[in-house]
Computed example of a mutant assay.
Amino acid sequence: MTTVRERPVLDAGTLVSDELRETIASDVRAKYGHITADVAGRGVGQMLAFLAASAATDKPLSPSPLVDDFWHAFVLRTKDYADFCQAAFGKFVHHQPGFLSREEHGGGKALRARTVEAIMAAGYAVDLEFWPELEIADCSQCHANCHNSPVQNIAQAG
């Protein structure tokens, strides 16, 4: 008989110090007054899980609009963000606005599903409240068309 052991699901929020996690959460709450402390704390974790998954793959992944808001807040703290990327991943995870080819990467829904699968494969918890597009949309990457790809493939509007 073969026994399958599931590995524990990791809380990506622990990738940064409590102080930095609270700072990012506070930055998001200051910009978006409707976000509660609970949502902000969980959002930082989902953003960090996204970054960890992004650092572990060569394929572009895409944040949900809400996760992207947390990523923007972290990126604006440039030194903290750069130091975190180097310490956690040994490389910088670029925030690359632009459009990805639907033919090459699938639509927004397929790209977002790949992102959630990558987060789970990396061993991190997925909080589906932060990924609602999986159920309803086949849209672009996020409201600002952000992704982690180091290759910029911008589609020009005709």
Rank of each mutant, 00 (worst) to 15 (best):
T2H: 07
P63H: 09
A49G: 07
Q86K: 14
A55P: 02
P63F: 09
A87W: 01
P97K: 01
S54F: 00
R42K: 10
S101P: 04
S101E: 12
A37E: 14
D69C: 10
R77L: 06
A25H: 02
G123Y: 02
N153E: 14
V93W: 00
S17I: 13
H147Q: 10
G98M: 05
S64H: 04
P132F: 00
Q46R: 07
G90A: 06
K59G: 05
I24C: 09
H105G: 04
F89K: 01
G13F: 06
V39I: 11
Y124N: 03
R42H: 08
Y32R: 15
L61G: 06
I35M: 12
N145T: 15
P65L: 08
D58I: 09
T23W: 02
S54C: 11
M47Y: 09
E133I: 00
G90D: 07
A12G: 15
L61Y: 09
A37M: 01
H143L: 12
L48M: 06
P8W: 11
K109G: 13
A73Q: 04
V67D: 04
L15A: 07
S26C: 07
D80S: 11
P63L: 08
E104A: 07
A113V: 01
L76A: 12
F50V: 12
F130N: 02
G43I: 01
D11E: 15
C85K: 03
W131P: 01
G107Y: 07
